[in-house]
């Protein structure tokens, strides 16, 4: 259990680091750190409390991050990409990529196939989360703006 807190804290700091690597400064750094931590918290919540699988959890985590970025971007008048990219970094399956490569080199093809499949599906789940949330939020904000104009 304590490991999960470490992981979430590490996700926060990792996202903060990436935000700095991409040259952001000031208040946006804190938002990125918060978003990075949130992405992992949502993932763990789906996994452990909702009992969802790996891919479903990743889907909801990336959907949550994109929703946060879309709302925040309109609030603080920043392009969505600027916030979304550092926030989503902890979800990117770097570990799976590494283990897939290592199994391939060790000629453990069954394990390699498992990791490679998992890698593809993880990327796909994240992509789906981004795609659906982006399209939905565009629709939702269009409706909101229309209502405000009236």
């Amino acid at each position: 259990m304590i490991q999960l807190y470490y992981e979430t804290a590490a996700a926060c700091i990792g996202s903060l680091g990436f935000a700095m690597l991409f040259n952001l400064r000031g208040r946006r750094l804190l938002w990125c750190a918060f978003g990075g931590g949130m992405s992992w918290a949502v993932y763990i919540f789906c996994m452990l409390i909702m009992g969802a699988g790996l891919y479903t959890s990743l889907f909801f985590a990336s959907a949550a991050v994109v929703a946060l970025a879309e709302i925040l971007a309109r609030r603080i008048k920043t392009p969505v990409t600027v916030l979304m990219v550092p926030m989503i970094i902890p979800l990117i399956p770097g570990g799976t990529l590494y283990y897939a490569m290592s199994y391939l080199l060790e000629s453990r093809y069954e394990l390699f196939a498992r990791e490679a499949r998992s890698l593809t599906l993880q990327v796909f789940a994240i992509a789906l989360g981004i795609i659906i949330t982006t399209s939905l939020s565009r629709a939702v904000f269009t409706v909101i703006y229309r209502l405000k104009e009236k």
Binding site: G14, F18, L21, F22, T81, M84, V85, I88, I89, I92, G94, L97, Y98, V123, A127, I130, I131, T134, S135
Partner: peptide, 19 residues
């Protein structure tokens, strides 16, 4: 270390382009 090199930005931007 690998996480630093992984093209996370290129990946998310390309997905957004496709959408």
């Amino acid at each position: 270390n690998i996480m630093l090199l992984i093209p996370g930005l290129a990946l998310t931007t390309s997905l957004r382009d496709i959408i």
